[in-house]
Design a protein around this nucleic acid. Structure first.
Lengths: 143, 143
DNA sequence: CTCGCGAATAGGAACGATTACTGATCACCG
DNA sequence: CGGTGATCAGTAATCGTTCCTATTCGCGAG
């Protein structure tokens, strides 16, 4: 599993022409370690633990490259920085307006939505995302 | 139609406890006049034409209030400021990665997606949005 | 294995969007 | 009308992100 991932990622780097550097590997590792959907700052702090010399800008650039070659996904929310995710399959994420936590909604896909929207627009669709906001059980209880 | 809208909006203001000021009316008018999905800056410039003394911060605060009481909708994109919209019904908007224009995808709703996600999560869902990115015909032709 | 070159990095400054602050002004109930 | 709490104009500050430049690194050619 780890080896397969590694091989796929190396392949994507080779095809894209980008260099697979230690910093970019570290960013990928940090994303794997973190449970939720970390922000660039979260990733930066994790990477910094092992290599204190990394720059925040490098993390942003690495995340941008990794997203471009299709290894990670990014989602944008109100009142929150961009969150990153190793899951690149179309899926639904929900963010709690109380505590800010982002988690995946398991078992619910986009269905035929992507096909329907491709049929209904003359645009060349490159990317579709669903962002959901609400209150998690704990925050709902806290009022 | 205009009168009905007006009445509904007054009602929403009354119920929420917010004040219906001339600036907030002007922001609503600007949203009605503008064809597409304006940013806060776009709205600010439109409002400023009639009342040059309005402050950008006031426009932001007005947009925030109007969104809170359900009179307008907001959507967040990558590489673009937040765009606002008089259409509060669930619908799909697409943004061109080339020219930045945002437009509605007509005839495509969320379908049963909202029901399915409510059934699949313990969260209290308050808001769901679909953001789509791609290339408009003109930008695709321009390569 | 070593060299050399173009890509990537560290560190920090700059930027754009948005929010926060403060004294003056306004909307609205009585 | 008159008072009062909400809102506003103007501006400073914040936050996430991008940009810049000299230095370092990855990696293919030899």
């Amino acid at each position: 599993m780890g080896v397969t991932l590694e091989r796929d990622i190396r392949e994507r780097f080779r095809r894209s022409g980008y260099t697979l550097t230690s910093q970019r590997k570290a960013v990928l590792e940090a994303l794997g370690e973190s449970r939720g959907h970390p922000s660039a700052e979260d990733v930066y702090l994790l990477v910094k633990k092992k290599n204190p010399r990394v720059a925040l800008g490098t993390v942003y650039q690495a995340l941008s490259v990794l997203e471009e070659i299709g290894v990670i996904g990014a989602k944008h929310w109100s009142e929150s920085p961009t969150r990153y995710d190793l899951n690149v399959e179309p899926h639904l994420d929900i963010r709690c307006l109380g505590c800010g936590a982002v988690s995946e909604i398991p078992g619910v896909g986009l269905g035929d939505l992507e096909d329907r929207l491709r049929a209904a627009t003359p645009y060349e669709v490159t990317h579709a995302a669903v962002v959901v906001e609400g209150l998690c059980p704990a925050c709902r209880a806290a009022g």
